[in-house]
Design a protein around this nucleic acid. Structure first.
Lengths: 194, 194, 194, 194
DNA sequence: CATGAATGAGGGTTCATTCAT
DNA sequence: AATGAATGAACCCTCATTCAT
């Protein structure tokens, strides 16, 4: 599908939405403010997103995609499970620290109840390869036999928490990132010390 | 002597607020709906809470207090650190599972940006004794030497995640609760297996 | 009619009303603010004045009465018409300058449309002796033969304007008061220079 | 090209505001009633006037401008100071009698305290040429040497009073208009009879 | 398609008045 | 009589959405 010239506006609106929502909160982010920040007329927003809901959903997917892109941008050096996991952990945390707005908006959207389960599932799709990796690690006995969803959600919850602590500035980013992963790995690996 | 302000109505409004906000989301929860659910006139809400913000803040404190009460209701049997921590972990998770609305509202409030740091701090106060316990465990070498705030926030993040997974119904509540704690403890304890 | 103890509150409310209305404007002066300023409970106000309207009317009458009292407090020295008129002019202007709140409230009440013609008439009653004086002066050929109401309203309009100019501080109070009267007298007297 | 803001609607809202405020009083004139009277949706009023205050200010300026227009519409026949002054007096009074609503609204606005000094000054600007005329007459010795502001405010106060008396119907409009001016001229002129 | 004025339902809050105590 | 909590109608203003240009 070829990109049209107007995809510029589509993207501009999404970008503006992130900025405005991060600054003011989802419910205090009128579509008028978003369109203005995007350099677009108020009505134009609605030719790209029929509804504020639709915009919210698109934004959710968009941010998740951006995260996935960063996560899988480079091939990891390491071949063993721990190295792989740490690689993605680092990417995740680095992305979150570099894009606090995105994470904040993701929080807002998740908490808002505007994101339907269907959209939420769609947002998880790009992480399929990460899931494969985890499943393989469980099968091969490197990770503990824990319900799959508990495991992945723990990864995400701890990564997000680590990012929050880094942004709160309680310690060096690098140290927190390393410590966070250590906690996670010790919690999940069968033989953490190997 | 006039009609006196009753704890009755104060509590009824808070209860109604939790219900309505949990159902519809904070920003989609008009004060009119809250007062109606509380069985109170629209204006009455504002004799108890001058502002929707004030209501939000009060709600935040209230829920935190309820949680703290459950957490510290009974003296834990165990004397060792692991037992103590598990005791409180269990209480936390049980409370979250029993009161999904409360947790959802807490999320909403936290994400909304309506909660000032001052109120947030006030909401943490009742957990002081938990903090003491954690600090002692670190000092005595039972828990790993990890920045205090990273540790406590990890506890909270993992507990909340565990509650979410239980509510999603992916596994038996008891099993998830036990597994969740195991992951946490392995991650944080110096010698997890003892 | 003997004054009751409760007349204290009646008067306190009127006094408070003047203060609050002068400060904030009639429509921005809630009865709650007035009762508070009067040191009285909100409901109490309504045992003395059944309605905000009633309070407004009572206030109108009250201020007019206060003005009349000042106007006729002392017997004028002068015996001729000019001296008499000037005496009352001076009293009027001095009262207005000393009580800017009262005049401002009178303006507000008059402009508000809350004052019925009946009440307005009642407010004019205390000035009957002034009217007699004016009628006599017309009959005796000292004042020009001008419709009575035009004459008295001119007196009032010019006095109020003079007060306003004094309060605006464009010139010495004494000078403005004298000049104002001179303009009035020259305008109304048959032989101004005698 | 979108719908453009029309002078049409702008004017319609101002006209409606005058009508509604004159009838019910400023504070009892809801914006909803004004927009309805203007044949416009409630929200539309706020695309033309961001605030009720702004509407009030605009209304003040608008009425003052209308008055100024009438005042200076035709060149006066007379060349001498008295003729000039009488010409403008007549115009003022005629306008006031023909537009009782406008005057009433002006009163309301002035008394309301919503009109900032800045706006008040702006409303006086169109009368600059009248001021020039008065200053010239003072310099040339036709009008008495009286503080300028006292003089102009007296003109206005007496004109408004005359209008009120005419509207009260105590005498023929023409007669009151002539008498009013006579009183004013005698009061202000150095040699009234020439 | 793009624009931004127009729309009107809805929201938080105020306030005169009532009424239980 | 005094109190002040309770009431609910109104009010000003916002904002997602529509539509004429």
């Amino acid at each position: 599908m070829p990109r049209r010239k107007t995809d510029d506006k589509h993207a501009a609106i999404l970008r503006a939405a992130i900025q405005v929502i991060a600054e003011r909160g989802l419910s205090a982010a009128p579509t008028s403010a978003i369109s203005k920040a995007a350099g677009v007329a108020e009505g134009t927003l609605f030719t790209y997103f029929a509804t504020k809901q639709d915009l919210a959903n698109a934004l959710y997917i968009d941010i998740k995609l951006q995260l996935a892109e960063k996560l899988f941008a480079r091939e990891p050096d390491a071949a063993n499970a721990r190295g792989l996991m740490q690689h993605h952990w680092n990417r995740f945390v680095q992305w979150g620290v570099a894009n606090p707005s995105h994470l904040r908006v993701l929080d807002q959207l998740t908490a808002s109840g505007m994101i339907s389960p269907k959209i939420a599932a769609e947002g998880s799709a790009p992480f399929a390869q990460l899931e494969q990796m985890v499943r393989a690690a469980i099968r091969s006995g490197v990770l503990r036999k824990v319900p799959f969803l508990l495991l992945t959600s723990t990864f995400e919850a701890m990564a997000q928490n680590t990012i929050r602590q880094i942004n709160a500035g309680i310690e060096t980013p690098g140290k927190l990132r390393r410590l966070g992963f250590e906690i996670l790995w010790r919690g999940l690996a069968v033989r953490p010390d190997e």
